[in-house]
Design a binder for these strands. Structure first.
Lengths: 339, 339
DNA sequence: ACCGATTGTCGAACCGGTTCGCGTGAAGTG
DNA sequence: CACTTCACGCGAACCGGTTCGACAATCGGT
């Protein structure tokens, strides 16, 4: 069931079959029909490996996603789903690669063995050797998130600085004066994860601007850590009346901690942050938050990558999104702290 | 940077390079070292496409996951993560394919174009044309979940019947006499999703066995539907004191509905079901539930598939798991209904 | 000193497509 | 009717690996 077989049965040469199927050269209507008929009868489909070898394109894009041991968040699932779908719509397959660092085995496979035409990277760090490596190789790639020097790159991303600041302003407008920031785990912050850094930055600056009293915390990516973190927040400053978080996975724990401390949301305590909409709607009360448009980011990343593949020396493009805060039920006016 | 280049620089033939790297024939220590040195210097890696074409193996497995439009659940993310990791550990890549039906374009790509050596299928239905199709082709595959006739297949799965029954018994032992079952969306039930069917079955049979009064519901995969569903449950039978659910995504909504109806969990109302541990720990109070060992299922699926690839006519194998109920904080003794 | 076995390497064919240059027969033109 | 033009299809080379059969050199044995 290879192209030779089709050629034999249709009574033409292999090249004619190839041209008939690809349309890269004209073929008479008669032979085209004959070939198509044989192809349909046998259900022939050209081998992806052979084609890739011959024309140097695999029609596959690599999705490099966070290394193991990380707890995956709902956002990441939405990314993956939307990337795969958008790619499929453009006739590309998606190869998953769990990869942390540059010298990683699976990263080597992707690039060195030329399994993919281009790559999409998630979980970007401000200083990211994978990104530098790919840039040095001039390998077509798009990042979801941006490094400290995003000028020459192709990326889609969220303006975490502005989003965290928007959360602060939202709370400050409601009268909150003492608030906490619950970040991703310290390990990720130290590693330089961009969302953790820029989010922290935006929070800190906006808080200073508004003259607020704030504390910032790192928190593990799970419910138990969230609960512990909240206990610590109230221990460090019992007058805290609000928090901003980037940590989806800790959210349930934060809520539990508040409930156990007898703080009612939103009457006694306001919670907001940057979280995927689906997650925000799951907790009780529903979270007022900047909804991460994960599906849209994924789609746009694919669009950019394919554009880059089609026109190899197009100038870099990017999309920076700043979704608004969706008001739900987790924030409210600050009461008098000691009442 | 192909094998010919390496051969030239090392002063040997292409075949010698191939043998030196694969070890499939002995090569003298001297030339082996020389070749290795050149390879290291140039950072040479053999092209995956060429290799796949030559020896007919892609070293890639396909992961067929649910069609678009579905809300993805946390479980699915854990599957994907663990599959990718387990595959990477065995030197396989994972190709994602969003696919519903047999005749699907991306399904055709996977099989027809021979992009993968084998496949793992998620979201199995009792009658599943994809599974039948693959079986007819004798294409190596493993399903996560099992069809109505699983005897001749390779699969890993959860015993949803037993798990749902265990939930019923757990609640009945606590004294609950009137309970509801919250299933996945009706559309999925009608389509024949195995977890929905077997779960419903197990629930119904166990309830009959214990002489309980029960109602069963289908519920959309999101928080809003969960909330609506709970309202309906209490409207249909205000004396309901417990529920069992398979629907992770609706869980938050169910809880919210209970809170708004003034029912305290677990004092006035018990909730249990079959849910990924991470999710069960996120809600407040934490859910007592049979924890879906998604990561383990994913790992085992990869192991089975690779075993099947390595030994093409080994007899079918499978793993049926029945995780115990983890007692957390969402179930408690039934009070007197009218008190 | 001769012979058979062993060891290490090479050349060629093959996997299944794509693409380039060329030949052939029919149609168009003066 | 001879001559260009064009449309169509063919054969061969190539992509970058793997694998098989053959061959030369070395070795041990008698």
């Amino acid at each position: 069931m290879n192209i030779g077989e089709i050629a034999r049965r249709a009574g033409v040469s292999r090249s004619t079959v190839s041209y008939a199927l690809s349309g890269k050269r004209p073929v008479s209507e008669d032979t085209r029909r004959k070939i198509q008929q044989v192809v349909d009868e046998l259900g022939y489909r050209p081998s992806a490996s052979a084609r890739a070898l011959a024309n140097g394109r695999t029609s596959t894009i690599g999705l490099v996603f966070p290394p193991a041991g990380n707890h995956y968040t709902g956002m990441q699932l939405d990314f993956i789903g939307s990337v795969v779908e958008a790619a499929a719509a453009r006739d590309y397959d998606v190869l998953l690669s769990p990869s942390g660092v540059d010298s990683d085995r699976s990263f080597q496979r992707l690039l060195g063995e030329r399994r993919v035409d281009g790559a999409i990277l998630m979980e970007i760090r401000l200083q990211d050797d994978r990104v530098d490596h790919l840039a040095a190789l001039d390998f077509p790639s798009v990042t979801i998130g941006r490094t400290a020097r995003p000028e020459r790159g192709w990326w889609v991303g969220l303006d975490h600085t502005a989003l965290a600041a928007a959360c602060v302003h939202h709370l400050a407008d409601l009268g909150h004066r003492r608030m906490a920031f619950v970040n991703r785990p310290e390990q990720l912050l130290r590693a330089g994860y961009e969302s953790a850094h820029r989010g922290l930055d935006g929070f800190t600056k906006a808080a200073a601007e508004r003259g607020l009293t704030v504390r910032t915390y790192c928190c593990g990516d799970d419910a138990a850590s969230g609960q512990a973190c909240l206990e610590r927040i109230l221990y460090d400053d019992p007058d805290t009346t609000a928090l901003v978080t980037l940590n989806e996975a800790a959210l349930g724990g934060l809520y539990r901690g508040l409930a156990q401390a007898g703080r009612h949301v939103p009457r006694d305590f306001s919670v907001t942050g940057v979280v995927a909409a689906r997650w925000a709607e799951t907790v009780n009360p529903q979270l007022s938050a900047a909804d991460v448009p994960a599906a849209e980011l994924g789609r746009r990343a694919v669009d950019l990558l394919i554009e880059r593949l089609d026109r190899p020396d197009a100038p870099p493009r990017h999309h920076l999104l700043t979704p608004p805060i969706s008001l739900r039920a987790s924030t409210g006016p600050a009461g008098t702290p000691d009442a």
